[in-house]
Design a binder for these strands. Structure first.
Length: 599
RNA sequence: GCCCCAAUGGCGCAGUGGAUAGCGCGUUUGGUUGCGGACCAAAAGGUCGGGAGUUCGAAUCUCUCUUGGGGCACCA
């Protein structure tokens, strides 16, 4: 990456200046290489001279001068002093060379190696397997999948996992619901459970069970039949979930069963770690995790640690406080103790799960993608991670805000239990997979997305999805035409260019027009974007970049004719167009979108 | 009450402690006999919610207040 290179050049220059006595000895502090806000000022800027002013006890401008004096950039960039700022402008020769580098890298262009093969797990999706994949879950999987793509491009060894919540109360309700529909369809007068799932898909599942198994489950004891049908139902749901995921280009490496944590005994083996530290507390017939091991007393409300007054409130409940408070969470309720393995709390599973991820499977980092409804669970997972003796920095919890779906100018209300759901499939049917992914990625995860179906469906300039893809299609059109006119056989990314064009590689200053140079600069940003997304875990930078890239290409397209110019100009511009195509296609691929050749 | 997140042109949003705060939509005015007009250019539009602090330097960090959203189950 250019930034890294500039950084090490600066560092070496400072050291050289120190060795020569132009700067006093000191340890070089951390500094950054920035893009100036005004692009016409410079490509990159370094403001380290201001940071050093105090340390070196010299005026910033003088420090900057001393650094610049020792800079050796080998023609890659020109340096300009602007007071205390050291500004860099990449040279046309350097930029020209980068076009070749991009073409050589092809589909690998944009890949960097900040991950150094470290193992990261991205857990995303993980919606309850009690119904089809909803649009709400769509944001989860699109964020997770895109991050996984970016992390992979950044050199991490990434595993994509879906946590199947196949234990607990909701699953019991689900099993009861399937059983009720099953029995009803076989003519029995079975009441539908009050907490049941009312969606039509439950009836469909029951119907398909009847087709395969007939009425044989009716002869079983009711509880057993409910459990059996629940399991069959979950399998059916997960099959449909996988099919829906595939439609938006998402494939998980692993589906991890919550139930397995208990059935394999992993949970029971982790518990003693907490017990030895006296962090398990009995209270009111239940088993609790208490972050500081303090007892739980009736009528107590937990206060933040720093609150020394500590006057017990008059409430009859224990509050699960968030950060800054002592975490106190129930692990096993009396019901669970009475009926082990059937209904552990979600938190009980979380304990074993984080242990499984970090210790048994040894991921360097575990990223969880959670909806905002789980925001309150963050502190307790962090607390128990620390209690297990694990480095909390290895656990990253990303909390995204929900989406609001709009149709005909009205909000579409959803609820899985009521059966009033809009599935991801519905939305994909309506606006397409690419638009769905783009919209769900386009904002920071902290921002609520209003997904207006009518607006997204409009393939207009109000919709950036098509603007980006249009740029790619237009490039393909130019290349098709070039193939006819110049006789290039096939212009795929990564394929070698025919002789006449590739011979021009060695020339140094092919690109001179400002729009050409601006486009190359924009292409080079891809590595920085991958770095940014992977480091900050913020996928929204990708759609922003894609749009900006498309805009920059449009300016080039307007200013620089490709075909019908002097042969060497056409050849050079074709190479640039191809490099743009590669960059755009790779960016779209990171977002899980297609790069259409025609629209 | 406690916790989390947000507040930036008319609307929707970017913004990495650095120079004159950007982008899209909308508005106004222009542009195409040319490789795809699903296009492009220019202009207008900002006390970055209020206040204090840290810093050579704050939209960005800290504190505080205000407003809005969400979370605080022996549910998942």
């Amino acid at each position: 990456m250019i930034r890294e290179q500039l950084k090490s050049h600066i560092t070496r220059a400072i050291q050289a200046a120190q060795a020569a006595g132009d700067l006093p000895p000191f340890e070089i502090p951390a500094f950054t290489v920035d893009h100036p806000r005004q692009a016409n000022v410079a490509d990159y800027a370094v403001s380290i001279a201001m940071q050093l002013a105090r340390i070196a006890k010299l005026p910033p401008a003088q420090i900057a001068q001393a650094i610049v004096k020792r800079l050796e950039l080998e023609g890659a960039a020109t340096v300009e002093l602007a007071g205390p700022y050291i500004n860099f402008r990449l040279s046309p020769q350097y930029l020209t060379k980068q076009v070749s580098a991009i073409l050589d890298a092809g589909k690998q262009w944009g890949n960097i190696d900040i991950g150094a093969g470290k193992r990261i797990q991205v857990e995303h999706g993980s919606a309850n397997p009690t119904g089809p994949l909803t649009v709400a879950a769509g944001r989860n999987v699109v964020i997770g999948d895109t991050l996984a793509n970016a992390l992979s491009a950044a050199g991490y060894d990434v595993q994509r996992e879906w946590y199947v919540n196949d234990a607990g109360n909701q699953i019991r309700h689900f099993g009861e619901s399937v059983y009720a529909r099953y029995a009803q369809q076989l003519g029995r007068d079975e009441p539908f459970p009050e907490d049941g799932y009312k969606g039509d898909y439950i009836g469909d599942i029951a119907k398909s069970i009847i087709e395969v198994d007939g009425d044989k489950h009716l002869s079983l004891p009711r509880d057993e039949a409910r459990r059996t049908l629940g399991k069959i139902g979950i399998d059916a749901i997960m099959d449909s979930v996988r099919a829906s995921l595939l439609r938006v280009g998402i494939r998980h490496d692993n589906f991890f069963s919550e139930r397995s944590l208990h059935e394999s005994g992993q949970f029971e083996r982790v518990l003693p770690i907490l017990r030895e530290k006296n962090l398990l507390v009995e209270y009111d017939d239940a088993l609790w995790f208490s972050e500081d091991g303090s007892p739980i007393r009736k009528g107590e409300t937990r206060k933040p640690r720093h609150d020394s007054t500590d006057a017990p409130a008059e409430t009859d409940e224990v509050v699960n406080d968030n950060k800054g408070a002592v975490q106190v969470v129930v692990i096993r309720s009396p019901r669970v103790i009475a009926e082990p393995a059937e209904r552990p709390t979600y938190f009980a599973s979380d304990i074993a799960y984080v242990w499984n991820k970090l210790v048994l499977r040894g991921f360097d980092r575990a990223i969880y993608v959670w909806g905002e409804d789980h925001q309150g669970d963050v502190p307790r997972l962090m607390a128990v991670t620390k209690a297990l003796g694990l480095d909390a920095n290895r656990v990253v919890l990303l909390i995204y805000r929900f989406i609001t779906l709009m149709r005909n100018g009205q909000e579409v209300r959803m609820g899985k239990r009521s059966g009033n759901i809009v599935t991801l499939d519905d939305v994909v049917d309506e606006v397409g997979a690419d638009a769905t992914r783009f919209v769900l990625l386009s904002r920071t995860i902290d921002t609520k997305i209003v997904f207006d179906l009518d607006l997204v469906k409009k393939q207009s300039d109000e919709n950036p999805v098509y603007y980006v893809q249009y740029a790619h299609a237009r490039i393909c059109s130019i290349l098709r035409k070039a193939a006819e006119e110049i006789g290039e056989s096939r212009l795929e990314i990564g394929s070698k260019l025919p002789g006449e064009i590739s011979n021009l590689k060695s020339q140094t200053s092919l690109y001179e027009h400002p729009s050409e140079l601006a486009l190359i600069r924009k292409l080079l940003e891809l590595e920085e974007v991958v770095d940014l997304v992977a480091t900050q875990l913020q996928p929204h930078h990708l759609p922003a970049y894609a749009q900006s890239l498309a805009t920059t290409f449009s300016a080039f397209y307007r200013d620089c004719h490709v075909l019908g110019e002097a042969p060497e100009v056409t050849a050079a511009r074709l190479r640039l167009v191809r490099a743009t195509q590669a960059t755009l296609a790779n960016t779209l691929a990171l977002m899980g979108m297609s790069a259409p050749e025609k629209m």
